[in-house]
Design a binder for these strands. Structure first.
Lengths: 332, 332
DNA sequence: TTGAAAGCGCTAACAC
DNA sequence: GTGTTAGCGCTTTCAA
């Protein structure tokens, strides 16, 4: 900046004024400074600028998502971005790949005034690092999952209720042997979905059969294996609730291969891309990831605006989209 | 930090040493400082710390994509991230929404935050001004599209060749009336695809019929409208090359609705999510977005490592995935 | 093993 | 309309 000032024949302060589009600068001076900036390839140092400012704000927030090629994360991003952009705030996104080490590194990288706030899909069980963020008075909103013992706002989908609704929908269509495919129940969302499934069975007087519950479905390959196991049971289910998008995909794949698409009732979770073009079109409980992102961003900005009410939990409902696969009757 | 120093009865420098886990600190002193840090809830100000440090490198790069919920962008992100993470470098992504103004703002925001380099899907036609936004010493690699008048590495898909291959594939299966659905040809990629389509027709002695070329397909709705127009032609095509993922989706939708899925041959571009589960499964020219991202990141790191050879263009080939829809014969 | 002084690049407050 | 001085919170010499 000093170099720019020298070249333009002004003081550093005047350069600062031009850079920040302040008024009270002579047009000729402004032009000279601009020229010097361009000539020298000068770029403002945001860290230093922020350090010097009284009200230290970067007008940017960080978003930590699990993975960029997860449609849920993408929708979340979209929701957050909409709200932030509306307020002239940038969103910097990075993915944790569900790895606590990466998550920590990202948080450190963004930390301490680099961004004004965080929206985090928590990966680590133990969220000690939050302490340092809170210590620095940087607000955090968690999304999708609830980290243990943390005093911060949390916005999640209504997983248990969604699973209950999905399962009840299948029961309403006459099914009594209903398979479940979900992730490892060490994941909060997966455990909640399992509970919702069990709730619905119990509420309808159905017994739970452990053989019908596939709990380790984390990849499409897992999903295909799980689907195969379910179909090969001595008494296979007549309907399956696939409580992850990846699970529905693997399941549909296997059903197609076996020519069972028109026979096995299926409800998926998360509205994956071409669900409506499948045959039959896939009935899903659609999580409103955009709404989750929107709400999370709104909470974050409320905190940034000084809201110091106690942290709260916000639950965004999912909605059942009936398309065909979930309304298939019990065969025969 | 000064408070901590006072409380621990040491100087600021010693606090700094403890915070940064430097050696050469008496264990007793270290413990006293630690205690003071805890008592006061002190948190290091990363911005100030970084400002003071001599060698300022953020070990992070910025990635500007068109939109987060575009699968191509997501794959690109994935490719970039893989290479970057491998080198312990963080990737911050943001989406331009194809808006040059947003693009400019993002670039400035990232540049002032000391990202070490940029990977950009250019939105603006003319990218000369970008140089000044970024600053002289920060390398840039462009992806997917070639900005005008810029001396920087560019990594793109082989759009013209892909379109040629896709169209030739349909011709090889006997089709002579082949529809084209692509974006506005003001977009470089769309124009290249149109050219490839024309190339293939010409190479096989087929005449181009403007009525068969739908050039403004930017949304799913556009795609449905375009598909409808093609089907309603007096002499409709027997095959269609949908040169955008969104175009294939709209097209498949319309074909399904009209019961023409098994009749109309279709080749898509971009391997969208559930393409292989459609009926018939969708034949596509799969752009290797991950490879584009990987290559772009490798080029960027090469530049960061001091490679100062002249900027070059890198073209990543796409590959034809035959799944069924593209191999349907001419009816009767 | 520890501390003092200087300064990173910028903006605030106030002068002129 | 523009410049001066001070200082943001930290790390770097370099000295003790």
């Amino acid at each position: 900046m000093r170099e720019v000032a020298t070249r333009a024949g002004v003081s550093a302060k005047t350069v600062s004024r031009v850079i920040n589009n302040e008024t009270n600068v002579n047009e000729a001076t402004r032009a000279r400074v601009r020229a010097a900036v361009t000539d020298l390839g000068y770029v403002l140092d945001a860290a230093a600028a922020n350090l010097a400012r009284v009200r230290r704000t970067s007008r940017s927030i960080a978003l930590l998502i699990s993975s960029v090629d997860n449609p849920f994360s993408a929708q979340l991003f979209r929701g957050v971005e909409t709200v932030a952009t509306h307020r002239g705030v940038m969103v910097f996104a990075a993915s944790t790949e569900e790895d606590p080490a990466i998550e920590d590194r990202l948080i450190s990288a963004f930390a301490s005034r680099f961004v004004d706030g965080f929206i985090i899909t928590p990966t680590a069980q133990d969220h000690r690092h939050i302490a340092s963020l809170i210590g620095a008075r940087v607000p955090v909103v968690y999304v999708d999952r609830t980290p243990a013992g943390i005093g911060a706002d949390v916005v999640t989908s209504n997983n248990r209720e969604s699973a209950r609704t999905a399962t009840a929908h299948l029961i309403r269509h006459g099914h009594t042997r209903i398979g479940l495919m979900t992730d490892h129940t060490s994941l909060e969302t997966a455990e909640e979905r399992r509970q919702g499934y069990v709730d619905a069975l119990a509420a309808n007087g159905l017994v739970q059969d452990p053989a019908l519950m596939e709990l380790g479905v984390a990849t499409r390959t897992d999903a295909e294996a799980a689907a195969t196991r379910l179909l090969d049971l001595p008494a296979p289910p007549t309907a399956i609730f696939a409580a992850r998008n990846i699970a529905s995909i693997g399941l549909v794949q296997v059903l197609r291969a076996r020519g069972l698409s028109q026979t096995m009732a299926v409800v998926g979770l998360d509205d994956v891309g071409l669900s409506d073009l499948l045959d039959p079109p896939l009935t899903v409980m659609a999580q409103d990831a955009v709404a989750i992102g929107t709400l999370a961003a709104e909470r974050l900005f409320a905190r940034l605006d000084g809201d110091d009410t106690p942290p709260d939990r916000y639950v965004v409902p999912a909605s059942l989209i009936e398309r065909g696969s979930g309304e298939l009757p019990v065969p025969r």
